[in-house]
Design a protein around this nucleic acid. Structure first.
Lengths: 146, 146
DNA sequence: CAATAAATAATCGTGCGCGATATAAATAGG
DNA sequence: CCTATTTATATCGCGCACGATTATTTATTG
């Protein structure tokens, strides 16, 4: 029962891979205006939802390692959007907090989700349904990976 | 009508972004056994379907730039899986061809699509339907991007 | 047919993204 | 307490991935 062939078309993984690139191309001009990359934008969104998160906490939410986040957070700090402070309670922990400029940036970013939604050409219900399916796929893959 | 908020959950882009990472984690051990990365695997799959493709042709299929493909193809060549030759007809063009070892590698890779399909926990029909939706999303995004 | 434009790869710089490893702090055990 | 282990972040090396630029070849045009 070797049903699945070595092909690009018909491969859900290739579809996700290329959809991710396509998505980045849509975000790029919008994020350039804010001086952010997409992963940096994700960190900012996470901090706008809940300020003062640890590196590990952000990593769990965004599925990223400290080896990715540490330099990224340093760049956000250099850009003036966040501060990075060691926790007083536990000196191992680093906490990322929004700066005033980082807080102000939220308003400039507010229009982005609608721009992206428009670019997909789908209505809210269709997007929500598809998003739920992709999240379910992600969860299945994450469970399967040892 | 500012319906869409700055949140991670509910964002189809974040879902795709993280699903791509999850997918990579599943592929990694399978591809490590072949000495390939996922983008390298995509090039090999493309060449197994049609040997002797130009850099530009591969770029169109895989949605990648020459600045990504050139070094990647050089690594595949260094690994002994392909050769890179200038076209005799048009000296601007570089053609990637499978080596004997590259041809043999296809058999070792044959089981991978089934492994991945199993990891998704979905049946063939469900995967095909979801893949079609993600491809449609990709096309919509690519059209929207100027 | 020579000057110009277009096409094709390649190069360079920047920023992910991860695995492996290191460093330092906190906790556990004897 | 004092050592051993665990935890949290940081560092390093490698491979994408892209935009901007360059080099070379081919096609076009006056």
């Amino acid at each position: 029962m070797n049903d699945y062939q070595l092909k690009l078309d018909g491969s859900i993984c290739f579809a996700i891979y290329t959809a991710g690139h396509a998505m980045n191309r849509v975000y790029k001009p919008l994020l350039d205006a804010l001086g952010l990359t997409y992963p940096q934008y994700l960190v900012m969104v996470s901090l706008w939802q809940e300020d003062g998160q640890t590196v590990g906490g952000l990593g769990e939410k965004l599925f990223l390692e400290s080896s990715t986040l540490t330099p990224l957070l340093k760049r956000l700090e250099a850009a003036g959007y966040i501060r990075r402070d060691r926790s007083k309670v536990d000196e191992r922990v680093v906490i990322a907090r929004l700066s005033d400029e980082g807080i102000r940036l939220k308003e400039k970013a507010a229009a982005i989700p609608n721009c992206i939604a428009n670019a997909t050409g789908r209505d809210a219900a269709g997007l929500a349904r598809l998003e739920a399916e992709i999240v379910a796929l992600r969860e299945a893959l994450n469970k399967s990976a040892v």
